[in-house]
Design a protein around this nucleic acid. Sequence first.
RNA 1: AGCCCUGUAGUGUAGCGGUAACACGCCAGCCUUUGAAGCUGAAAUCUCUGGUUCGAACCCAGGCAGGGCUGCCA
Length: 563
Amino acid sequence: MTQAETSVDFVRGIIADDNRSGKFGGRVVTRFPPEPNGYLHIGHAKSICLNFGLAADFDGVCHLRFDDTNPSREEMEFVESIQEDVRWLGYDWGDNLFYASDYFGQLYEYATKLIENGKAYVCDLTGDEVREYRGNLTEPGKESPYRNRTVEENLNLFKSMRAGFFEEGSHTLRAKIDMAAPNLNLRDPVLYRILKQTHHRTGDEWPIYPMYDFAHGQSDSIENVTHSVCTLEFEDHRPLYDWFLNELDIYRSQQIEFARLNITHTVLSKRRLIELINGGYVNGWDDPRMPTISGLRRRGYTPEALRNFCDRISVARRDNTVEIALLEHTLRDDLNKRSPRVMGVLDPLKVVIENYPEGKVEDIISTNNPEDLTMGERNVPFTRVVYIEKDDFREVPPPKFYRLSPGREVRLKDAYYITCNSVVKDETTGEVIELRCTYDPNTFGGTSADGRKVRGTAHWVSEEYAVDAEVRVYDHLFTTLDPDDVPEGSDWKDNINPDSMVVMESAKLEPGLNQAKPGERFQFLRLGYFCVDKDSTPEAPIFNRTVALRDTWARMDQDRKKN
RNA sequence: AGCCCUGUAGUGUAGCGGUAACACGCCAGCCUUUGAAGCUGAAAUCUCUGGUUCGAACCCAGGCAGGGCUGCCA
């Protein structure tokens, strides 16, 4: 697609219009405003790509601002992880790193101004009373009995709040708007609450903290943010956002809402992610099954794949659930181009090639990446005893099974054709534990001069030279499209996939792979993309399966079993 | 129930008055020393009903369906 044909999302449409009308003088300033109370997940990636992408497209800047107005749940650990994740995704905020807490002083002055203008008052109602007075969806609220205090009284009370003279919960500062407004956000919203907690940046300097509504828009305004992009649930807050900027008569940033991301087979709410961790269903924020940026990173995702995914899902205002298949596609698409091919056998079956001389070793030349020949070739040692995948052998081959079975011939990738002559079984269990085969010496490299058709090609690893490794095979975290799709009385956690991680303890990999560094990615031929786990060592290598290759046979086989 | 938002192939997006596009997925076929990748092809009467118009997915009205909002969370 050419640039001209590329259609733009509605946010870019708005900005283009604004640039045409000169609304912001052609300036574009966006911001990504996470609350540092958890790790970032792929839903945040959508917002990050949007905000930083907007800045890049319109020659603007994007700020990173921590929305740290609630000291009771925010921590430094999170502000660090968030910065790491944004950087890893490939974005740079330059000098524009801000904190809402940078503006506590300014925000206090704004509040004072509102009081002076008769637009805010100190309220002594308790939390329960505030709720009662607010009314509900259908009934208007009642005005607080403290609503008509004098400016002086309010000023003094607010100063006392700030000085720490009052207990938590005893007073709030509220905007004086309209207790009968159909939009509940306008029914005298709380601006400041008393919280005697140590803040991760301002320490004990403040006993009062601004609410989101009183902090966010003004922070945007202070930073001269032009387009303040947030998710749909803040839509009803926009009138309030505008009300503050208007009453305070400060820079008018514009809030634009978009629909948040949902993905099948996973959950994306912070609350649920924490529940998965605390319940021991996963091993922390960076468990490779988690949809967190750190989890995806450990799983082997690339920033490019994630950014491409965000491009493809685009952004709109309707609720959406993106199929996880699209995410996996953008991943494979990227990995396919960049990953060197290697051979690894996850579930080994021993193959003895009876007519191949004992002790003989041949170098098999293998292409590192057929998609990119500049990645070169390598030698893989071939010997009399090799391992193949158990799945590549069936004693009784079903229809359309092109792989090995007694009497059949297959190709060992890049090496030779082999024919299975007999099987060795475990005497007690009857399980096939070894294949006795012969090879055709005239098929070196994997081709025969006589043009014989060999449909199946198997990957293999020399027994003598194999590297032992642990391979963690990951799959979707939930078995159902929608984790909430549960029968009466069940829980979304009942849909957790019991096989979301299957550990293959005795995988056999081609030589050299124990030297791969954590984070290094490979395609294990015919199986999928794998990366070295952060806990891996040369002595005890650990690989994570990032994503499987599409597997037509496995699907056919499964369908066959079902029918 | 009040206010606000949304409704185009299975999914996600495009289309901005002239009878639907792209991607993923799915299915069918080709190709194949990865049953991968690649290549071909197939699938929507645009939520419904009226109206405006020569002409509507696009404009208007009214239904219906889905979502958000009743924290001193963000």
